[in-house]
Design a protein around this nucleic acid. Structure first.
Length: 1128
RNA sequence: GGGCCUGUAGCUCAGGUGGUUAGAGCGCUACACUGAUAAUGUAGAGGUCCGUGGUUCGAGUCCACGCAGGCCCA
């Protein structure tokens, strides 16, 4: 019976399927975790994907990357629990449902109840779960799919609530403002998603004003600031400059009032405000009304010099006047000189940058209080100025006699074009124009013009949007900024730049985390408030909620619990129906917001175990994570929310090691998209190549953090080159092991030290490989590990060890030498199966079980899967550096001889007398002698002759050792190199003999030692030589008759072997050979090498006949020979 | 506009701390092997190391400024 299954053809997808079946039937994954019960844990967190779309090839990448380290650490003895998870809330789900139902956000709660809508969302979000599970299984990503965490689960949400309450109790949750896109026409805020819809940004013409802000305490000095939204000018509370930019103070005249004045603006912007034709006109020569206005630069200053400069507001309105430090010049890092004046007008309520900058500088914005004392912007949600501004503008219109298409009252000033007035009537004036005229008249405008720019519009009403302050709930992450930065430094980021650059910079510029989302399907914010906002409750558990409901029922606010069956569902609309009772007996309603879905996923370390309500022990043993991996696009998403919650609530990092992988692009480097049709279908690819080649390709082709240009040809190449070679190597082993009935028995193996040197060498290489793989994997560098495995398998094991050792496998009976060869090859294959098992989990297990099945059946105790084995570390006592160097020399020398043979047109079958190798160090000679037989056999030469100093023909060259001398001599290096370049053999001999030599360096005596130079020998006079890696070889191409005869004999063996094969003979079949008589040399070859020919061809006889009929005519290159081969 | 990544042979990628012949695989060309054989091996050709400056005795490598592609954020 065959102990090792042999395969003619390999069906890689089939291996994937059969191994998957084996795993399932035998619970291998569960066993691999259960086996390690009580062992040290290695914690992995699964970043939850959303199953509302089908999985793509990039998910294969991400999931493979997660898998390999979990498998590796399991082999290393850790217990690695991997709980799967699903991200189920959020806008994409809602938009998909809206689209499918043909409704918009406004219809929810009207055309469809919130209850029904959310039910639909819940169904939709897991729609492709089966495909995801299938892909996950098929690629061999081991993760617990049976008991995943699901973010819509009430228990999961309960944990989220408890975390929110912890934040609340630490005073880290607050209600504030954020400037968001708002559509007055639709009366709703817009998400950035909605704003990115095609056609939202349109080119429109707006009135732009360069306003003059009068410098406080000066008669006629003004700061110029430009805006495309004049209606925001009454809300101005500061001006921003760029600290590094250059500014000028320019003496000139106002073009509308002709008043003499000094204006301040960026130097780089002068050309757009002053006509260069006027540059030579004297200030004194200007007459009011002149077209060309002279200007004169009085002073140049840096932006930083302007900081703190105070000015007077444009609109001195009593109700909106602000105290100091309002109306000062501050710094804004976004200020440019692309357009405007290089000075930016800031209105806190109407721009996100404005809001942030003013907040950072503790400058208040222009707001008025309503009856509850809440701040309101001076423009209402219909886009109309509040009367406090309206009255002022209306009175100014009268004062300046501004005629318009209608009489303006205090309640008529709409901003933008939100008024319903017909713009085409005579004398039509909108608010921007009214403001412009007032400012012009009051010497507060330096320029007014129409300006065309791109501005976002509401996709539903086609009207321009406003940036408007909206109430939002925030997490005060800025309070923990230092801690966030500090703890981030303890995280090992791969690549490092993502951690210190992308993520680190983000932390440095942290703003508070805006939690609010005005949607329906998500985790509700568990905060209830009285209508006047004076009292607030944050709920942290279902029990608390139920207790509040009870109180409310008792008070009569509620008639019953929204959860009559006792099963709390913490989604809308149920929680919205809960009305609580305040301490003063008033009604409290839930703040209607949902929270950011990133909070859901960032809280998974706690919520996946329903901590703190359950599983405290499991949570504590699995926190923080040792390892996580996701796409680099998650840096500000999942990576941040994980980190933020861990730092703020647990004073810990959430993860210790993280790989941020790049994108998977198509083979041309373009982004994959289903629309463009260049997306790769993972299922199709798996069907064609199987999972192992796909995983292997993705990890070996490029570092995971670089973008991967995914090319199916590359997967094929990996399959052919790596898996094909490995498979051939296994087949080779199986073929002969079965013929010899060899079975590997650990207890009976021949000690490595007693095996031939070739065996010792490959075992030595194998140990180095284990070390390399271990070091790379411990450093989370999978690509380095996988490339090392590939190099070993293809170049060392297959192309060198097997090739050179081949004959030992097929010659004779099973003796010690042969056993050693089998054991060596077996050990390499079985070690490889373990080393590669993290990356190619299916094939490696299949290989492992092919290698061990026979032994297992014979009663040996061997784990049933490679994934249940213990990591077999490197045995450093088996690493023989000297031998490794020897073999490197052998490989180099063989390569050189091949090269020379090629140059001299001498095929390898033709034996040659000798090669010459110059020897500069005794050690090299010993090392080559060690592998002499091997070299001679490999390149078919009789002798290796060593040339050393005693031969008298050795020619040495010398080169400076730049690396060493450079440090010593620096700028004089050129002189040193020139001096050494002039050396002849006497100087070389001297330095070799004495270990030192004096040289003259521009009159200075300098000592050089033997280590300061590199001595080589690249020449042997009269010979054709080749050099590589410091080894030089010359080939003797003289052909004696005997060599020629041997060449003929070898050629004949080759031809007869071909004939045997053509005749369909088995390896062990015997033959008889008859050869027709030929010339003297051929006859002598047949005579002298008869025994050799018979041995090699399994011939019982070899006879030379005078004439041979019915023979085969062989083409012997230089002549033809008739032979007859018969089966004996 | 800002942060980060990438740019080396036709293609995909290696090239610690700067050191004098810049490498591998695939592809291409030629040859060899024919008892691993629907395999395999060897050799050869192929380079403006994205560009321009700079630092240095010496730059693919360090610095600055650009260019191209990508990601994230405004």
């Amino acid at each position: 019976m065959k102990k090792y299954q042999e395969y003619k053809q390999v069906d890689y997808p089939g291996i994937g399927e059969s191994v998957l079946k084996f795993w399932k039937e035998n619970d291998i994954f569960k066993k691999s975790v259960a086996n390690r019960e009580g062992a040290e844990t290695f914690t992995f967190f699964e970043g939850p994907p959303s199953a509302n779309g089908t999985p793509g090839i990039h998910h294969v990448m991400a999931r493979t990357l997660k898998d390999i380290f979990c498998r590796y650490k399991t082999l290393q003895g850790f217990q690695v629990k991997r709980k799967g998870g699903w991200d189920t809330h959020g806008l994409p789900v809602e938009l998909q449902v809206e689209k499918e139902l043909g409704i918009t956000k406004e219809d929810i709660g009207k055309k469809i109840s919130v209850e029904e809508y959310n039910k639909k969302c819940k169904e939709t979000v897991m729609r492709f779960k089966d495909e995801w599970d299938q892909m996950t299984e098929q690629i061999g990503y081991w993760v617990d799919l049976d008991d995943p965490y699901i973010t819509f689960d009430p228990k999961y949400i309960e944990t989220l609530w408890s975390l929110l309450k912890r934040l609340y109790d630490k005073d880290l949750l607050y209600k504030g403002y954020t400037i968001q896109p708002f559509s007055p026409a639709a009366g709703t805020g817009l998400s950035s998603h909605e704003l990115n819809q095609p056609g939202c940004y349109r080119d429109v013409k707006d009135t732009s004003i360069t306003a003059q802000f009068k410098v406080k305490g000066e008669d006629s000095a003004y700061i110029l600031a430009w805006t495309t939204t004049p209606w925001t000018l009454p809300s101005n509370s500061a001006l921003a400059i760029g600290e590094k930019l250059d500014y000028v103070k320019v003496k000139t005249f106002n073009p509308y009032t002709f008043e003499a004045e000094t204006v301040i603006l960026a130097k780089a912007r002068m050309s757009s405000y002053f006509n260069s034709k006027a540059k030579d006109i004297q200030i004194e020569d200007y007459k009011p009304g002149d077209k060309l206005i002279p200007y004169h630069v009085e002073e140049e200053v840096k932006g930083s010099d302007l900081l703190g400069l105070e000015y007077e507001p444009l609109f001195p309105i009593e109700g909106i006047k602000l105290p100091h430090p309002a109306y000062t010049v501050i710094s804004g890092d976004y200020v440019t000189t692309e357009d405007g004046t290089g000075i930016v007008h800031l209105a806190k309520a109407f721009g996100a940058d404005d809001f942030r900058t003013l907040e950072q500088n503790n400058i208040p914005g222009v707001f008025v209080k309503d009856e509850n004392g809440t701040d309101l912007p001076v423009v209402d949600k219909q886009g109309k100025f509040l009367p406090v501004i309206g009255e002022y503008l209306a009175s100014k219109m009268k004062e300046h006699n501004i005629a318009a298409h209608k009489e303006f009252g205090a309640d008529d000033f709409y901003v933008k074009n939100y008024t319903k007035d017909d713009e085409n009537v005579a004398d039509y004036k909108n608010t921007d124009i009214v403001i412009s005229i007032i400012l012009k008249n009051e010497n507060k405008a330096f320029r007014v013009e129409k300006y065309e720019h791109s501005y976002p519009h509401c996709w539903r009403t086609d009207m321009p949007i406003l940036y408007y302050p909206m109430e939002s709930w925030f997490v005060k992450t800025t309070a923990y900024k230092d801690k966030l930065v500090e703890l981030n430094k303890t995280i090992n980021w791969m690549p490092e730049s993502t951690g210190i650059g992308r993520f680190g910079n983000w932390l440095e510029n942290l703003v508070d985390w805006n939690l609010s989302r005005s949607r329906f399907w998500g985790t509700p914010l568990p905060i209830w408030r009285t209508e006047d906002g004076t009292e607030e409750k944050c709920i942290g558990s279902i029990d608390e909620l139920n207790a509040e409901i009870q109180k409310s029922i008792e008070k009569g606010f509620m008639t019953g619990s929204p959860f009559p069956d006792g099963q709390a569902d913490l989604h809308r609309p149920y929680v919205d129906d809960v009305i609580m009772v305040s301490s003063t007996g008033e009604k409290m309603f839930r703040e209607p917001d949902l929270i950011d879905v990133w909070f859901d996923s960032g809280a998974m370390p706690y919520a996946q175990w329903h901590y703190p309500f359950e599983n405290e022990d499991i949570f504590k043993a699995n926190y923080p994570a040792d390892y996580i991996a996701e796409g680099v696009d998650q840096t500000r998403g999942w990576f941040f929310t994980l980190h933020a919650l861990a730092v703020m609530l647990f004073d810990s990092v959430a993860f210790k090691n993280v790989i941020a992988n790049g994108l998977v692009l198509d083979k041309n480097g373009n982004k994959m998209s289903k629309r463009l049709g260049n997306a790769v279908d993972p299922f199709k690819t798996l069907k064609e190549f199987g999972p192992d080649a796909l995983r292997w390709y993705m990890l070996s082709n490029a570092n995971p953090w670089d973008n991967l240009k995914f090319n199916l040809d590359g997967v094929g190449e990996v399959q052919r080159r790596f898996f094909g070679t490995l498979q051939n190597t296994y087949n080779f082993f199986a073929l002969y092991a079965n013929l010899d009935s060899f079975t590997y028995v650990e207890a009976n193996k021949i000690p490595v030290a007693e095996r031939p040197e070739l065996d010792q060498w490959i075992i030595s290489r194998l140990q180095s490989l284990i070390e390399e793989v271990e070091n790379s994997m411990n450093a989370y560098d999978a690509t380095r590990a996988i490339r090392a495995i590939m190099n070993f398998t293809v170049d060392q094991l297959s192309n060198w060890y097997v090739r050179l050792a081949r004959k030992r496998f097929w010659r004779g009976e099973l003796n010690t030498d042969k056993q050693g060869a089998y054991e060596t090859l077996y050990e390499c294959l079985s070690t490889l199966s373990q080393l590669m098992s993290s990356f190619a989990p299916f094939y490696s297990d299949w290989l492992f079980r092919n290698l061990t099945e026979g032994a297992r059946e014979a009663g040996q105790e061997i784990p049933e899967s490679i994934h249940l084995t213990e990591w077999k570390g490197a045995d450093s006592s088996l690493i023989n550096e000297d031998l490794l160097q020897s073999m490197q020399l052998a490989q180099d020398i063989c390569s050189l001889v091949h090269s020379l043979r090629k140059k001299e047109k001498m095929k390898v079958r033709q034996p040659l007398q000798k090669i010459l190798v110059p020897i500069l160090a005794e050690k090299t000679r010993t090392q080559i002698q060690h592998v002499e037989e091997l070299i001679k056999a490999e390149v078919n030469i009789k002798h290796i002759e060593y040339i050393d100093d005693t031969s008298g023909i050795l020619v040495k060259n010398v080169k400076p050792n730049f690396a060493k001398l450079g440090k010593q001599f620096g700028p004089k290096m050129k002189l040193v190199a020139a001096a050494i370049g002039k050396w002849g053999k006497d100087q070389i001999a001297e330095v070799e003999k004495n270990g030192a030599i004096f040289i003259d360096l521009d009159g200075e005596q300098v000592t050089l030692t033997l280590e300061d130079v590199l001595i080589t020998s690249e020449d042997i006079p009269g010979w054709s030589v080749a050099t590589e890696n410091g080894v030089t070889v010359a080939l003797d191409v003289t052909l004696t008759d005997e060599l020629k005869q041997e060449g003929i004999a070898r050629d004949l063996v080759n031809r007869i072997q071909n004939l045997r094969k053509d005749m369909g003979l088995e390896v062990q079949d015997k033959i008889n050979i008859k050869v027709a008589k030929h010339d003297e040399n051929v006859n002598l070859a047949l005579e002298n090498f008869s025994k050799y020919i018979q041995e090699e061809t399994q011939a019982l006889s070899l006879s030379v006949n005078g004439n041979l009929e019915e023979g085969t005519i062989l083409d012997m290159d230089d002549f033809e020979l008739t032979v007859k081969v018969e089966k004996a």
